[in-house]
Structures are given as C-alpha cells and as structure tokens.
Amino acid sequence: MTQQSVQPEAASDPGPAPGQRTPRTGGLLLKELTMPIVLAAFATYLLVNMLLMEVPESVDFPGPRFFPAVITGVLYFLVIVQVVQSIRHWSAGNLTAESEDSAIRFAWGSLLWVVGGFLGFALLLEFLGWIIAAGLLFWCVAQGFGAKRPIMSLITGLTVSSLAYIAFDMALGLSLPSGILGGGF
C-alpha cells in the first residue's frame, strides 16, 4: 500500500499566469458606483425639498423651482450615465484585481482645496461679494482638480462669476451680494 499525499485544490490551482489579469466582481463595482449613489442621494434631497417648497400662485415662470429642477434633472441624468458605464465596464471584465489595487486612490489635497473653497466662499460672500467670492471658489475647485495654470483659472472664475452676477441682477432682477465692490464695507 502506497501513501499518496493529498493536496488541497487551492494548492493545485496555480492562479493567473504572469501578466494575466484576474477578474473581480463585487468590490470594485461597488467602488465605481459610490459616486453615482452619492449624486443620486443629493439629487433626491433636492427633489424632495423642491417639491415641499411653498410657492405662491402669483409667481411667474421660471419661478423658484426652475433652477433646482434643472440641476436635479442633470444630476439624475449623470447618475444614469455613470451607472450604465460602470456596469458595461464591469460586465466586459475590464475591472480586475490589479485595477482595484492601483486605480482607486483618495486625494486628500484635492478634497481640502474643494472643501476649503466652499467654506471660504460661505464665510466671505457677504464681505467680498459674489464676483470675488465665486471667482475664488472657482479657482479653489480648479486647484483641487489639478489645474496647471492658476492665473488662468482665477481669470476664468472671475469672468464666469461676473457673468452670473450680471445675469442674476439684470436678467432675473435678483440681487447677489456686491460686497467690497459695491461699497458695502
């Protein structure tokens, strides 16, 4: 009687060949769907509050629900596009263990630029006014996303915020804070 060594099945499976990717299923798909889930939650929050908003009958079009409705619609559209793209990518087998380990990195510096920009905008809006505060917010967000030309980002931000100020003030008749440019301080 000879003794045979019994090896577990896992030991006989050599794994993927060098350079060959190992397909992954659940974990990476969930990571890819994290942002669409957050956007869908935010869009739902906007939708619920927009529907709960009390609007007098005498309000003309576009009214206070128009811009939140546009933003909500765009957010839901982006969520659908991202989910479809993630599922197609996942079902094609393009999500792998290697891409899971190397592709998803969290950039704390970017988060700090964006959150700091929003915090600064909220705190300085009344003092600096819309044009300067929104221009600086644009610049901070651009830095957070890795802009290579900070002066161009600042000029673009100030231009866009100036156009928004003019549009709200002249076209819609709504006043935004003018801050130091309006002589308020």
Rank of each mutant, 00 (worst) to 15 (best):
E54D: 08
N49Y: 09
V55A: 02
Y76D: 07
V55P: 14
M53D: 04
L78V: 05
T72P: 12
V48R: 10
F77S: 13
A69F: 15
L75F: 15
V70S: 12
L75T: 06
V59W: 14
P56R: 06
I71T: 09
V59P: 15
I71L: 15
T72H: 07
M50T: 06
P62V: 00
M53A: 11
L75P: 15
Y76V: 05
M50P: 06
L52D: 09
L51T: 00
V74E: 08
S58W: 04
S58P: 10
D60R: 13
V55G: 06
V48H: 07
N49E: 11
M50W: 03
V48M: 08
V70T: 04
T72G: 14
F67T: 00
P68R: 04
P62H: 00
S58E: 12
F77T: 06
F77Q: 04
R65G: 01
R65I: 03
V74I: 15
L51I: 01
M50D: 12
V79N: 14
M53T: 06
L75Q: 08
P64G: 04
R65T: 01
V79K: 12
P62L: 03
F67D: 01
G63K: 06
F66A: 05
T72E: 13
N49K: 12
L78Y: 09
L75C: 14
M50G: 05
F66V: 01
V59Y: 10
G73Q: 06
L78P: 12
P64Q: 01
V79Q: 14
M53R: 13
F61C: 02
E57H: 05
A69D: 06
F66Y: 13
F66G: 05
I71H: 05
F61Y: 08
R65N: 04
L51F: 05
P56S: 08
I71Q: 08
P68V: 01
M50N: 14
R65H: 04
V74N: 13
M50Y: 04
F77P: 09
P64K: 00
E57T: 05
A69I: 03
V70N: 09
A69V: 03
F66R: 07
P68S: 02
R65W: 06
V79W: 11
F67P: 13
P56V: 01
P56Y: 04
L51P: 04
M53K: 15
L75M: 13
V59T: 12
G73W: 11
F66E: 05
P64T: 00
V74L: 15
Y76H: 08
L52Y: 03
G63H: 04
